[in-house]
């Protein structure tokens, strides 16, 4: 699953550390999410979406495997 987390975070001028502290996750989790190595739980996806006042679909892009 792809996501626009890094792009959105940078556009708002927030550091990984700040975002991690706001979401109460580790900085490494934010890094892994941005690199697409880790897919968040639905709860974390909602937290991220609410943090940026966006919908989950605007941040996370699900593409079906061909």
């Amino acid at each position: 699953m792809k996501n626009r987390l890094e792009e959105i975070r940078k556009s708002r001028g927030i550091s990984q550390e700040t975002l991690a502290a706001d979401l109460e996750v580790s900085r490494q989790t934010i890094g892994s999410l941005e690199k697409g190595r880790y897919n968040p739980s639905i709860i974390l996806a909602f937290k991220i979406a609410r943090h940026f006042s966006m919908s989950i679909e605007e941040i996370f892009i699900y593409e079906e495997e061909k």
Binding site: E24, Q28, T29, S32, Y38, P40
Partner: peptide, 9 residues
């Protein structure tokens, strides 16, 4: 606490 409860960890 965050490191312990972090879902990825």
């Amino acid at each position: 606490e965050i490191e312990q409860s972090d879902e990825r960890n």
